[in-house]
Each structure stands twice: as C-alpha cells, then as structure tokens.
Nucleic acid binder design. Structure first.
Lengths: 100, 100
DNA sequence: CTACTTTTGACAAAATATGTCAAGATAAAA
DNA sequence: TTTTATCTTGACATATTTTGTCAAAAGTAG
C-alpha cells in the first residue's frame, strides 16, 4: 500500500523535478519536502492541494490518501481502531443529515 | 446520537457529583470540565480514561465515542469524508498485518 | 576529487491545546 | 426577592506540537 509521500516522490521524479525545484514552488525548504516524501513529516492540507496541482495528480484522490493516512496514524495503536472508524462513519452521516 | 460530553454529564449527574467535585478528581478546573461536557473543548485521552474510571463507564466504549468524535470532527467538512474512512480502514488493516 | 542532490538533526517561530481565574448567568432555597 | 451555590463564559497564561530554516553530513554521478 503506497504512502502519500511515495506517491508524491514518484510523480515528482516522473516530471523530472528536483526537490529544490518543487519545494520552491511550494514555498518551503527542500528539507521539508524530503521529509514529507519519506514520511518523516506530514504535509499540510494546503500543501497537498498545491502538490496535486503542480504534479498533475487528482486533488480528490491525493486528499483521500492524505486524510486516510492521518486518521490511520492517529488510531492505529488502538485495539479499538476499527470500531472507532465504524462509529465515526455513523457520526459523519448524522452530522451531514443534520446540516441539510 | 450522543456526544461524549453528553454521556459524561449524564453519568456525572447520575452519580450526584458536582462539576467541581469531578473536576478536582481529574485535577483540572471545573471550567474545563464544563466545556468538555458541553462540547466546547476536547478532553485529552488521559482524561477520558480517568473519567471512565471515576464514573464507572466502560473504558473501551467511552474511548470509542471519544476517538470517533475526533475523527468525525477532523473530516466532517470534507466531501470525501466517507471515502477517506474506507481507505483509513484498509490502511489500518495493512499496518496491523505488517506488524505481526 | 568535484559538483550536485538529498537527508538529517539542531534549532527557531508560529500555531494550537490546555489550563487558570474571575466575572456573569442560571437556578434553587430561604 | 434576596441569598447562595452551581455552572458558564471569556480573557489571558503556559505548555506542547507543528511547521519551518539552516547548515553539515551523506549519497551519487561525472
């Protein structure tokens, strides 16, 4: 299963971009982008959207990867992780229903 | 659907405890507990476990409520919330499989 | 070796989370 | 209705986490 960072690195290399070049466009130091690609640091939501744009990746797909990774990271250590996800799903349905 | 705060408040009242009393046992100001019960502030994971203990609630159940609420809060605004949850589930399975 | 890219770690700044306190709102008792 | 106790709210302080910079080390190709 690919990480968000791996997806980004692959696509950056496909485009022939250096860390330095892509980082400049993101307005951050190359060190951070390196860490993001390697999974040492999390990107921000804004950076993910910019990256999708700059690398011609589908925004929604990359965002799903990114969000799911954050969620998994938050609860993977919990024995009850799966149950928490199930309840979260119901909660979200509930919230969306209520908003209409 | 009940919030974690509502569950806590109900149980505190069932036990006949004042905010001040329960807060003291949690080692925080009553103001914070009030906010937690009303959904103004998030509890910490540690506080949730202590609360389950002090209020005779099942640790796992309260923790599931709490975690699911945090997850839902994080992504409820996203159109792709549900898809992110699905992928998160797969990711968690993947992580757990890998660990063994 | 040299020149270039990437990685790493120490540190700084910014943002967020967590808490205290005191004053205001609410409600029940006298 | 005044008094008393509880709860709520908002301003502020502190602590923790996140996000970033920089420079040196490590890796890679000519």
């Amino acid at each position: 299963m690919k990480t968000t960072g791996e997806i980004i690195r692959e696509q950056r290399e496909k485009k022939g971009l250096l860390l330095r070049q892509l980082a400049a466009r993101l307005d951050i130091d190359a060190a951070i982008l390196s860490k993001i690609e390697r999974g040492d640091r999390k990107a921000t939501r804004e950076q993910i959207l910019k990256l999708a744009d700059l690398l011609d990746l589908k925004k929604d797909e990359l965002l799903i990867q990114y969000l799911s990774e954050n969620i998994a990271y938050d609860i993977a250590d919990e024995d009850i992780a799966k149950q928490a996800l199930k309840v979260a799903e119901k909660r979200i349905e509930y919230i969306k229903r209520k908003r209409k």
